[in-house]
Amino acid sequence: MHDQQHDDERLYEGIFQSIKNAADVEQAVQKFRDGYGLGHVTYHLAQTVAGQLQIDAPYVRTTYPPTWVARYLMKGYVHVDPVIKEGLLRSLPFDWSEIEPSEHAIAMLIDFQSHGLGAAGYSIPILDKIGRRALLSLNSKPDEANWDELVTRFRQDWIELAHVLHKKAIFEQFGDDDPAPVLSPRELETLYWTAQGKDYKEIAMIMAISEHTVRTYMRSARFKLDCANMSQAVAVAIKLRLINP
């Protein structure tokens, strides 16, 4: 059990890094799919165009085969796709078994199946600080027998990786590089003590707070610095002169 946890952590860190190192989001979704042995991975950034023109030109990067993508566009499935429709309204991650398709969507699902695509899926809604919404959908291989176990085992990691992809997509599309992240005093303290070689249990003693609180500060600091683990977060924090150990 402990070994599996360790393996999962290594896997997460490896995929985190390959998403960041990927040439573009297109390549990043492939890395995600291959790393976790999924059928397909699709990132969909919702687009709302200001003004009178209600042009929906969503930014989508997917590993689906070109034949299915062409079919999807030709048939206008984006307007009936129940995963997209609900996914951009929901906030909590959801399994495709929670989505009730409309009558219009049934034909699309039959078509989806005939392209040899897997029935199970898990989608992660993404909401960022300026209110942009995106959806990352993970689709099983057609012969996947342990989907629920896979979801339970990896969902926390998948949810974090969804945001890593989102940051990359935002950068790719808008060139927005996040301004220097704002870290709270306590988050900086956990980074400082990590730089001194302390683990979270020791830091909890030093700061006289619970271990869970230390880990919460660490997770938040790591997310803001867009890093796969604490040692990377420390390196980035030093580079940005946020801490001076």
Partner: peptide
Amino acid sequence: RTVPERSVTAEILRA
């Protein structure tokens, strides 16, 4: 969680 009888997954499997 609310899991409907007719779901996306169930419909794909049915096909």
